[in-house]
Simulated scan of single mutants.
Amino acid sequence: MSEFKTSRPDTPPTYAPWEAYQRPYVRDLAYVLACPNVLTAWLDFAPHQNTHEITVHSASFWQMQFEAYQQRLKELDTTNAYQELTRYLLKRPSPNRLGFHFEGLLSFWLADGFARNLHPYETLASNVQLFNGKQTTGELDLILYNHKEKLTEHWELAIKFFMGSAPFAPENWVGINSNDNLQRKMTHMQTKQFRTVWVDTENHGQVKIDKRYGVIKGRFFLPINTNDFSYPAWLAPSFPIHEWCDKNDTANLATIDIAALRAAHYIEWFSKRDFYDGRQSPFIYDENGALKTGLYFEGDRPIVIYPEQRDRIDGKF
């Protein structure tokens, strides 16, 4: 039986079966599969534009994919097969960037799982460049053929770690870079990448997209000591929810064991690496004597230190 965990007693438990795996990339892969989509349904923020229908996979869909792949995850976690996963990820462009890491994990599962008949999705193309004349205007993440439904699908991917504030509408979930929020990301996906109909592939010729899926995963963080939060209808109730704190909020910072905090390494936005414990100073100050913005761990409890004033801070996301 997979465990349910939460870092906040006042929220529903978060499904976290990825923590059962020992090897970091296997834990990340399990997280990418078992974590539900942020959304229960796509929200149309561009109703007056001529855009296509967009779908999201249900939480039960991702649970089914995770369960079908569990035996392979165990093999990757306990045998030399782990090298297949590490080699695949590390040979990809910019493997240390979270978005590319997320895409690499899903791409590995798609190719590996299809070869093992664990799902019906054949990868036809990935990172398809879009052009306006000779100018590159964007790219499409994944073009798949669903052999079960006999449909060509376009999956657009996003991995997001957003801090929320009341009233917790999509525009109120903001990233480390305050120009990034959930509503803006969805609008961009809908009005840019998802407008494409025909795609040229290297090995399968030109294909017509039949269905479009927005795959948005990650973690959300509520203001610390929020006691009146209710999941909006659009937010998956099993989506990972944690806490964030204003770095100048002395009252709430006093409730945190600052001496026990450890700044997370970049990859730990996916899952905590215990081998980093004790290897660095427990916290990092900026030039003004405040904790630097970012993800920290208080034991196994993830918490983001973030400026309430929404200052723009350049990050790696």
Rank of each mutant, 00 (worst) to 15 (best):
A251W: 02
V304D: 03
I303T: 03
S178K: 09
Q309F: 10
H147S: 09
S126M: 13
P93A: 03
D77Q: 01
K211P: 06
L151D: 04
W109Q: 06
N132K: 14
R273I: 10
K185A: 04
K316E: 12
I258M: 10
Y285H: 11
L85Q: 03
L142D: 01
P223A: 10
T78E: 12
T250C: 01
K91A: 12
Q183V: 00
S60N: 12
V38Y: 09
A264I: 02
E243S: 12
N252H: 14
F317N: 11
A169M: 12
L261S: 05
V215P: 05
E84L: 12
L106P: 00
F162G: 00
C245M: 05
Y82F: 12
E19H: 07
F100Y: 15
R219T: 08
D210C: 03
P93Q: 07
I267K: 14
P36Q: 03
E122G: 01
S281Q: 13
L157I: 11
D44N: 13
F114L: 07
W62H: 14
S7I: 09
P282K: 03
R195Q: 15
F161C: 02
D28M: 15
P9G: 03
E287F: 09
D257F: 05
I54Q: 11
P95M: 02
D314V: 14
T187A: 12
A46M: 03
